[in-house]
Design a protein around this nucleic acid. Structure first.
Length: 877
DNA sequence: ATAGGGTTAG
């Protein structure tokens, strides 16, 4: 029964008064129309739902005796329009009236029970069917199968099916569909074969069901076979069959075939377009999806709810604010303005575009109809836009209104640190039984890692029930962040053993872990190989991670190889490459890459300029550094942050222009942070400015009382000036505050084994040889006229001893060992956790001449390539 | 319809 526009007028003008008139002539046409209104789908909202139910009740209660046919008709209409509860009520009415339900009625009610997942009612009906003898009826049998399959009664459904004397295609299809909806895809496919073996011809619905199974399993080959069958059976022009074909091809990644089906269709409906658009999105063809949406509009097809949801989500991903607003207008015109899913999607889109007022407007208009989903959407919207306070307020308000947070809410709210303590949220998570949820667990892992508490993160990780790839990746990234290569590799091996397939995020984390100074170079290469095998090496995030890994592990050429091979690059790729060259002190290449970016009009960000300015700092190019700061502000309209000002302080400080550095500190629009003072302090030590050094140290110590660097630098300043009294005071302060100086370590890798050295270390089995090698070197150094620069010794001892202290710095021990253990002529690679001291820097330059060796030292800041008595850092570091 | 993991700097 379709509703004609004229009927709308009737419905709108309908009053109880008019109903009374119609009641008099029950069999007259208008009353049939009222039936139609009462059972009409909810989307046809020109009559309100409450009014429809008034009409329905009226019809039920006040109309004279009805016969089975009428009941049957009304029941079917209710069922068809998803009005299951009304259908049940009607059936109860029938039962009360003493009429004996026939097969068709029982069949309809069984279908309703299936939809309501009410097996208990279904079983009672089953008994009634048996008693009344209807169970023999094919349509009743089929409905019984359907009911059991929809109410978790797979076995019972199968039993009914097996015992059916007569079966139709519909019976077969119901069973196949039942298996499919219970995730038993293999059984569904088996049954499909069996059905055909027994000579049953599938109908269009059978094909739809089977294609759905094949789509879920991504079985394209079988899928195209079924496509052939569809054609043989002459169903290739049926719209809903084609829709399933399109869906199957797109879910299996065969975009071309899906488009071919689409192009050949004589009639397309909204589902067709939706399948294509949503399928394009699944396959990452976002722009094509936008284009098809456009064409759908041109084709004059009415947009439906799922289409809007899909396209609005696309807008969210692309921050397409203008388009999102246009879509909101379309939604209004389409009469879908009350749809909660669309509204939520719009809220998210506005949040992603940082239009929080618009998002909140939609949210507040939903008052009374909000659910945990809409609350969570709003809360995470604020969190992603830095509105932590709003988010926290909403979270509390939500609890006050009696809406319980779910796993989505908890994983979102864990970003609201430190407004919520992790401990509190963690406790709530445990109480509400969400601790096993992968998404909540992953957020907890991340939160603990960011607090440097990897131990707690590990505990959370072990509790997660079914660890998905995101959870594994989060744990890996935790180890990467603390530089624990071994821990990361262990986790990677574990996930590989469990058959989990890594994605680009997983691999970029493990590669990042291999960029740690202590990792063996070979390890990173192995994971590079893994990523090639998985064909992920060209993904954006992974190739950036590779560039960084190779650069940090000393292999700038491999880093450049990866960079050159990239088919697609983003800002991060370029930044990674520039920063690699900057760390290696290759100023020429830094400029080259930067100019490349500029010529191509590529986007640059604050990080690009931090790299550029600090590259200038290390090359002693003060004017150039200043130039880049100006380019950033004037040409690229990037607001300088505290970090940029700190870089400028560093630029002037290292060049010895301490006054200018102080000018920057005094002139910047923020309070100077720890980095600025630390830069100034370091320069004060080199340029021996005690007064300014004292000031910088005091500021730095006030900002970071537990950071040993400030104390050590200050004590170095006093030591350089020979002021041992003041120096002792600093040491005492460190003891009082329990601040520990970070010991200096150096590492060298020989034959895939890493050896570590402390200053004055005697633990190496070859110590004797190492120290005699050092002595030999020292003799040759004095022959060359080298004088130790004892300013770098921190103890109050005789000059002679000071020299001894210097010659036993950890990097020298490592180099001596390298000279002994590595074949002549090979490059010696050293890692150091602290900065190289000035004296060692001089000595290593000389050693590179004496021993005719290339020596590469990676200290806490950068690379030093020593060759022929020179260093790549140009003595700025 | 809502959520969690990754790559760049000092």
């Amino acid at each position: 029964m379709t509703l004609k526009p004229a009927l709308r007028t009737l419905a709108q003008s309908y009053t109880n008064q008019t109903l009374k008139q119609y009641q008099l002539s029950y069999h007259s046409k208008p009353l049939c129309h009222l039936h139609a209104i009462a059972v009409s789908p909810k989307s046809e909202s020109f009559v309100s739902e409450s009014r429809k139910s008034v009409i329905a009740h009226h019809l039920l209660d006040k109309t004279p005796q009805r016969d089975l046919l009428e009941y049957n008709h009304l029941l079917f209409e209710y069922f068809r329009n998803d009005r299951n509860n009304e259908a049940i009520n009607l059936f109860v009415g029938l039962w009360r009236s003493g009429l004996q339900a026939n097969g068709s009625i029982l069949s309809s009610v069984l279908k309703v029970c299936g939809c309501l997942s009410d097996q208990v009612a279904g079983r009672q009906l089953h008994c009634q069917c048996v008693k009344s003898g209807c169970a023999e009826d094919v349509s009743v049998g089929t409905s019984l199968v359907d009911m059991y399959m929809k109410t978790e009664g797979v076995r019972d459904g199968r039993k009914v099916f097996d015992e059916m004397g007569d079966r139709t295609v519909v019976s077969w299809t119901s069973l196949i569909a039942g298996y499919a909806r219970n995730g038993l895809n293999d059984q569904a496919l088996e049954l499909f074969s069996e059905m055909r073996l027994q000579g049953n011809k599938p109908n269009p619905h059978t094909f739809v069901t089977v294609l759905g199974v094949l789509a879920a399993k991504g079985m394209v080959e079988k899928g195209s076979q079924v496509h052939t069958m569809v054609i043989k059976n002459g169903f290739e022009s049926i719209t809903f069959v084609c829709n399933s074909l399109i869906n199957m091809y797109l879910k299996s990644g065969i975009v071309k075939d899906a488009k071919a089906v689409f192009d050949c269709m004589p009639n397309r409906d909204a589902v067709t377009w939706n399948s294509l658009i949503a399928g394009y999105v699944i396959n990452g063809l976002d722009l094509e999806a936008f284009e098809m949406f456009n064409q759908m509009g041109l084709a004059g097809v009415k947009f439906t709810q799922p289409i809007f949801v899909t396209v609005i989500k696309l807008c969210a991903n692309y921050k397409e604010l203008v388009f999102a607003r246009q879509l909101q207008c379309c939604v209004l015109k389409s009469g879908l303005a009350f749809d909660r899913n669309i509204k939520t999607a719009l809220m998210v889109a506005y949040s992603k575009c940082s239009e929080m007022d618009d998002a909140y407007k939609i949210f507040s208009m939903m008052q009374g109809f909000q659910s945990v989903v809409t609350w969570t959407a709003m809360i995470s919207g604020y969190l992603q836009n830095g509105g932590t306070e709003h988010a926290v307020k909403l979270f509390c308000q939500m609890s006050r209104e009696g809406i319980k947070p779910n796993d989505f809410t908890y994983s979102a709210i864990l970003m609201a640190r430190p407004s919520f303590s992790i401990g509190q949220v963690h406790a709530q998570v445990i109480k509400t039984n969400y601790e096993k949820s992968p998404s909540v667990g992953t957020s907890l892992i991340d939160a603990y890692v960011k607090m440097q508490n990897v131990h707690e993160a590990e505990k959370v990780f072990h509790i997660i029930d079914e660890k998905d790839i995101v959870a594994w990746s989060a744990m890996l990234s935790g180890y990467a962040q603390i530089g624990d290569t071994e821990g990361a590799v262990k986790i990677y091996l574990q996930l590989a053993r469990e058959g989990v397939i890594p994605n680009e995020f997983t691999l970029s984390s493990i590669i990042n872990a291999c960029a740690a100074p202590t990792a063996a170079v070979e390890q990173g290469k192995q994971f590079h190989a893994c990523s090639i095998k998985l064909r992920l090496n060209n993904t954006l995030c992974l190739s950036s991670a590779l560039v960084t890994m190779y650069a940090k592990r000393g292999n700038i050429d491999s880093a450049n190889e990866v960079f050159k091979r990239q088919g697609e690059r983003d800002l991060v790729s370029w930044n990674s490459m520039i920063s690699g060259y900057a760390q290696h002190g290759n100023g020429k290449k830094v400029l080259e890459v930067f100019e490349d970016m500029r010529r191509q009009n590529l986007e640059m960000d604050g990080i690009t300029f931090i790299i550029m300015i600090s590259a200038c700092t290390h090359a002693g190019l003060v004017d150039e550094g200043k130039k880049y700061f100006n380019i950033m502000v004037q040409d690229y309209h990037i607001d300088p942050t505290t970090e940029h000002y700190s870089c400028m302080v560093d630029l002037y400080s290292r060049a010895g222009n301490l006054e200018k550095a102080m000018d920057i500190i005094n002139g910047m629009p923020f309070e100077a942070g720890a980095n600025a003072w630390r830069a100034l302090l370091g320069a004060c030590r080199i340029h021996r400015n005690i007064e300014l050094g004292k000031l910088a140290a005091e500021k730095l110590i006030a900002l970071q009382p537990q950071d040993s660097a400030a104390y050590v630098l200050l004590s170095n300043i006093y030591a350089t000036a020979g002021n041992w009294q003041e120096r002792a005071k600093v040491r005492k302060l460190m003891d009082e505050r329990n601040v520990k100086k970070q010991p200096g370590y150096s590492w060298i890798e020989v034959k895939n084994k890493t050896y570590s050295f402390l200053a004055g270390d005697l633990s190496h089995p070859m110590s004797d040889l190492i120290y005699s090698k050092l002595e030999e070197l020292n003799n040759r150094l004095s022959d060359m006229g080298y004088q130790p620069d004892t300013n770098y010794v921190l103890h109050d001892v005789e000059e002679e001893h000071k020299a001894a202290f210097l010659s036993q710095h950890s990097e020298r021990l490592a180099i001596a060992f390298g000279l002994i253990a590595k074949p002549p002529g090979s490059t010696i690679q050293i890692l150091k956790n602290l900065r190289v001291c000035g004296d060692c820097h001089t000595v290593i330059k000389l050693i590179s001449v004496i021993e005719a060796r290339d020596i590469v030292v990676r200290d806490s800041n950068r690379f030093h390539h020593f060759k022929d008595g020179l260093c790549s850092c140009g003595d700025y570091w």
